[in-house]
Design a protein around this nucleic acid. Structure first.
Lengths: 240, 240
DNA sequence: AGCGCCTGTTACACTTCGTTACAAATCTCT
DNA sequence: AGAGATTTGTAACGAAGTGTAACAGGCGCT
């Protein structure tokens, strides 16, 4: 299991943003593009990003204004793209809170090096166990300790979950009785997009069931919705 | 950083370094200059600095070598000065741990903006030991005395941590329940960028676990997230 | 009933991680 | 300054975890 950093590339030139996202994807990152500030805001409202690459010159709301806004509202790292010679833009951007800048045209290798350097210094926006962090969670006959990743039951049985099993289970526990598709589960647990005939989640669910179901061949806790995905079919309660 | 940041400017051209230090002093900073690596080392041995501005092209030991050395020995922020078009120098510098670069000739205002941007970033990640000297930190069954670097528990057991173990632990303690990648931990604890198959952090974590975990082969305090890094899985509290 | 699709499972290859041992670097003491 | 002790980083090996491929069985539609 590996969580890839997710980069949002905001640039009004389609060729540029497509080339950038392609290159970032080739270098161990998820990349999503937005053509302007409005598109960016919509993307930010619907997803979680680790860093924004932001063009200064854009129609509508310009990059400096966006940078000011983002810096004021949180700790999202920002790498700004400026025109060659756009020195004032660079200075003002840095002064209002951008983490770095790069002048167009730029070497994509430098873009990746700069992004990695910024990410090295920033923390993720979410703890590993998400909203359940630090809690003990009761469901079915199990109690999950989210710190130790240990499942225990009334008979005193204790089961260690692997990282992947644990992540998958916490995602299901955060949405009791909701069907989550395989693509959703893959995205939420690993951040990667599915390949063509991806069976990763099925395999992990099988492994999880082997650990938590009374009879894994007739699952009662993690149920399958054919054509839909998987569902945590139990009440969920926090113990502490 | 309660008082004015102190910048060390390393450049072999006297006019340049004098102009820089003068300008920095006019902009709310203390500034000291050094003409080469030897002079810089002497200055570093006798004083404390918040950031180094480092020219790439210097007689004697060159800037890239100095950068590599400084990154390896601590978390001193470095802003590198490159010749116009010195792109390879920039990329390699960033890859070995420099925080930023600037091409000569540059606008002094941009220099100040960049220095401030770096300082803004670096003060954000100051570990307990730096900012909260004299504190005692409680986590799991341990109490850490940040002055003495001694861990103690309710049974009266006392454990001395080495410098590296202590630094690593305080970084984890600063971000309870967040996954910190190996690259992040390496950067935050030593300031250097990872080599290709770097296992330094793994080894240090193994050593730390041997000291603090009940059963180091089944760690409960410092947990591993496969493909992600390490996580301090406990509540953290300051005692004084 | 037949067929195609969907799902569960097993096995295996590969990746990642833990640990040990040793060399190199650093620290401490005389 | 030098010797010894301690700490830290690197290399190697083995264990654990993960994703892919293949096969079989079940389900739903015609």
């Amino acid at each position: 299991m590996s969580e890839l950093p997710h980069i949002l590339v905001v640039d009004d030139h389609r060729e540029i943003r497509e080339a950038m996202t392609r290159y970032l994807k080739k270098n161990g990152m998820r990349a999503t593009s937005a053509r302007d500030a409005v598109d960016m805001d919509a993307k930010l409202a619907n997803g979680r990003y680790d860093l924004i690459v932001l063009d200064v010159m854009m129609p509508g709301e310009d990059g400096l204004s966006v940078c000011r806004r983002l810096s004021a509202s949180g700790s999202m790292p920002i790498l700004m793209l400026t025109a060659l010679g756009g020195e004032t833009d660079r200075i003002v951007g840095l002064e209002i809170g951008a983490d770095d800048y790069l002048s167009k045209p730029f070497n994509p290798r430098e873009l990746v090096a700069r992004i990695k350097s910024i990410l090295r210094r920033s923390t993720k926006v979410e703890p590993f166990a998400g909203k359940l962090s630090g809690r003990r969670i009761a469901f079915a006959d199990w109690i999950l300790d989210t710190d130790s990743r240990v499942l225990s039951n009334a008979e005193g049985m204790q089961i260690d979950l692997t990282g992947s099993e644990f992540k998958l289970l916490t995602i299901l526990l955060e949405h009791p009785r909701f069907v989550l598709s395989r693509d959703q589960l893959l995205d939420l647990s690993t951040g990667r997009a599915p390949s063509v005939f991806d069976r990763t989640i099925d395999n992990q669910i099988s492994r999880l069931r082997r650990k938590i179901e009374l009879d894994p061949s007739r699952p009662r806790i993690v149920t399958t919705v054919r054509g839909g995905g998987y569902c945590l079919a139990a009440d969920v309660r926090e113990l502490s």
